[in-house]
Structure formats: C-alpha cells, structure tokens
Nucleic acid binder design. Sequence first.
RNA 1: GCGCCCGUAGCUCAGCUGGAUAGAGCGCAUGCCUCCGGAGCAUGAGGCCGCAGGUUCGAAUCCUGCCGGGCGUACCA
Length: 548
Amino acid sequence: MIDPVEPLDDGRTPARIFPVGPAEIPLAVPRDPAHGDLATSIAMATARLAGREPRELAAELADRLRESLPAFVSRVEVAGPGFLNLHVRTSAKQDIVLRILTAGADYGRTDRGRGERVNLEFVSANPTGPPVVVSARAAAFGSTLANLLRASGWDVTCEYYVNDTGSQVAALGASLRARWRETRGEPLAIPDGGYHGLYLAEMAAAMDGAEAAAWDALPDAEATAAFAGYALERLGRQIRAQMETFRSPFAVWFSERALHDTGAVDAVLRLFEAKGLVYEKDGARWFRATDFGDDKDRVVVRRDGTPTYFLADAAYHKDKLDRGFDKAIDVLGPDHHGHVTRMQAIARAIGAPAGWLEILLLQWVTLVDGGETVAMSKRAGDFVTMADLVDEVGVDVARAYFLARRRDSHLEFDLALAREQSSKSPVFYAQYASARIAGVLRKAGEAGLAPADRRDLDDLAMREELDLVRQLEQFPDLVADAAEAREPNRLFNYLQDVATLFHKFYHEHQIVSEDDRLSRARLALCRATRQVLANGLALMGVEAPERM
RNA sequence: GCGCCCGUAGCUCAGCUGGAUAGAGCGCAUGCCUCCGGAGCAUGAGGCCGCAGGUUCGAAUCCUGCCGGGCGUACCA
C-alpha cells in the first residue's frame, strides 16, 4: 500500500523537506492503528524553522496534501502535538489479502540485497567435545539470519570453521589416549589442560582395541595425533548431525588444518611481511596490530616456529576474500569480544574494503534448572549439551527461546520452565494461531465454500479485520529490516503480534456463518494470516503444525 | 587499570535505529465456550525505564560522567 510513496530516511535537513511536495515527506507506520496507517512528524520537526506553531503548520500541510492525495489514501488528519496521520483506503487493504494469497510461500521475499554475496560464519565451536548450549544459541541465530538475508535478496553461504589443529586438538588426543589406557586398567592420567568429559571415556570404550593399541605404541607426538584424528572424526560427525537436527545447515565446513597444509598460512605471513607488517622480537614474530588501532601487537609465529591461531585466522579471512564474497559476517561467542579489534586489523591488512568484515557478538546463555544455575565447562566435563537441550524441550522451543532475545542480551534459559510449561511457552502462541486457522479451514472445506474473489473481500471492513491486514502488510519490510539490522528477534516479536491480532479477530467475529460471501472473505483473511505465520515460522526454523 | 556488553513490572524479557497514554509471557485477582480449536479473549493490581547531567519540539532510545553486574585483556583456541 505504500508503493507510490517511498518512505524516506529521516536524515535530510528540514529545510530541504519543508518546501517540497508530499512525496518528499518522510513517512513511518505508527504503532497504534488509531494513528493511521502512515504518519509523519514533519510539522513538529520544522515548526521552529518555519516560525509557526506545530499544529497550525500541520493543518496547512494537511491542506496541501489533500490537493494531490495518492489514490490509496482516504484521508489526512492532524493529531496529537502535530502529527500528520494518513489513512489508507479500505479497498487498498482488501487488495493486500489477495496479494498475499497470490504470492503464497514467496510472500515476504524482496530483492533488497540485490544478490550481494555474503559469507556468514557462525557456531565454529572447537570440535573437542559435543556442542554446548551457547552453540545452540549461535546456531539458532545464525541460521535464522541466513534465512532472513536470503528471503531479502542476499546470496548467503553458511560456514563453520573447524579448528582441527593446534594445542587444543593435541590436548584432545592426549585425553582420549589417557581414557583408552584407563580401559586397559591403567590409572587415569588426563594431562593438564586436557578434557575430562565422560564422552571421551565412552569413546575410548568403543574403540577397536588392536588399532588403538597400535597407536598407543607410537612415539608420543604421533600417538597423540592418531587419537586426536579419531576423536575429531567422531566428534565432527556428531556436530554435523546435531546442526542438521537443529535446522542449522552449513554449506561449508572449513578446515583450519587445510590452511596449513595448502600453504595458505605461510602465504598470508609472506603477504604481511611484504607489507612490512611483521617484525621479530624475543624470538617470535609479531604482527603490527597497533598500526590498525589494536592495543598491542600480536604474535603470529611463536618462538618454537609454529604459527598461531591468529595467523591461521588471517589466512582464513583472506580465503573468504579471495572467494569473492562482498561481505563477511562472523558471529562470535561472548568470550571472543576481545578479538574484534584485531580481526578488523586482519581484514584491513589482507586488503578487504572498509566494512567488509562485520562481527556480531552473542551474549551468554545461563542455564538454570529450577532455581539452580547449571555449570558448563567443556574442559571440566560438567555441562549440558545441545543434544540434552533438544531432548528436553525440542527444537521448536529451543530455537524460539533463543530467537526471542536480542543477541546482546545475556539470557537465562530455565530448563525446568521450558520442560514443564512448554505448552505455555511463547512459541506455542504463534503455532497455536496457525493450527487454529488450519482447523477453521478444515471445517470450511467440509462446508464446501468456494475461494473468495476480489468482490467478496469488500466485506472485510471491521476494525479487527483491517488491523490484522495492516499487520500482515508489513511482513516483507519486517523481514528485510530484520535482516539488515541482523536482528532475528524482530521476526519473533512480529509473529507474536500477528497471532495476537488474529486471536482478537477470531474472538470478535464468526468466520464461517450463513453469509457465504462474508464467510469467503474471512476465510481468505484466515488463509493470508496462516500464510504469513507459516512463512515467518519457516524463517525461524520452527514448525507451523496443522494440528496441535 | 583499559576495553566490550547489560541494568525496563515480583521473575524472564520486548520496545521496530528519537515520537503520541512504557508492553508481553510467567505469577497474582476477576469475568467470558448450548457458538468455527478456552494452548484463546477481556479486565485489574504491579514502573523515579540504575543515578545525575546534556542534546532535542519530543529521550527507555542519542552523548558525557558516575554506580551496579557479566566478560575480555595469552607465544590457548
């Protein structure tokens, strides 16, 4: 309904806006339907400049607007301290119902991203243990953001960076080896910095004895590597399966070790050297991160000659750049915010354009069971895994729980609450609306009513009906805005509002009645509502059941 | 010390990049199905939006400074 008048940013100077015609006035959709369908605060913003009273100025603007009103606007009124509220013609709202039904599953798609290629990296948790709850939050966030971006015209590649080499992996190998020896009756001796989780004991118990014995007989470094390789393979498979189950698929699983093997790490080191960004001190080689605003320089090659994770990360981002992505988004866990500056330094050092790398930080998830905080430490082996969480509350509830929160809010996940009261959990509100509509449609199908045509829709004129349409109309913009702001939680909030407006409509009006024409019209509105709920829930990776 | 994030109803959290009387869920109190799904709807109690300044016609929202809480500040990843 706002096609003929593009809403504008508020960024221009009042002097430029005031003298020109109505098409240049910035418009926004008011929260409260009583305030119209489009509104502007232009009169208040420019009153002082014009030396006039806001309401008086608004009245004059309203008169001018009325002279050249777009066809879809029915009336203009001055309200409150000087707002100009535009009301959209009822017939234009009725049109929207048909537009939604025609677009079907495509309703909500736009081309705002214009095909720009985005690399979206998220989760990327070390494969040294089963994914934990924070990974579930990252998976829910990342996959939903990917869905939103794709729906809005971006070309997105979801990527998981696998840290399959380095000291953590060596510790993993040594820990598994210790667990295996334990199965042979030796005392348990997990090395310092090793992993104490029982999952390694279970893994060790299931190992092929002859093979493991052969590995154990190798020199320490080789033995550790062999056990580590075994553990990585098993854990990697587990992680992939769980991400699939959680509806968070990745197109690329990128191996850190491959960067070393192919010489990409060496290459980026030579690149930095050629740019004069590396120097030697205390036997190690340092990257001049301070040149890029970091508070200290960073080691890239240790005294013992091995490259650091930081250097591999530089090689990794160079690889993303070389693959031609217009933009790289990294979703990082809460314990990585100290990396932001140095990673931006990397981006500039590898020659990426300004703004190419975007880093999004997620905040902590505190797991609570009843009133008790559940401790989670992968190394200490005391944790609730992502799989546990899904078993307890299901994928829908878990995803919705995470998606309801802003990414930078620390969130408390109460297992007891989610488990015992899952049927009352917020996600079911929108799902229930969807199922309720499906029920009504089934009933209508039995009554043998034909689909509505445009003339039938003339009967949609009640406030609850039009408020609902007004909400449905905003879906495509909401999706694209949420994608651009990287705020999937907006989608959750929006769907809650859709459900609320539907329930109010449902409560106030009989959908299937003796009046066939009105029944057809209301059923069309129901179908359109269900379409928006289904499309929105699909973007969230949550099911929209026919029955509950 | 320095840096990042967060302080909104009893609890968990929203508040759409500055708008009109600050919202939801849970919990509490009270009404609604002889009628399409009551997992719903309606009403009520409950708020110096951490504190103090500033910008603005207008601030929960932007800026500064405090006070609280979390996290980071490795030749681990």
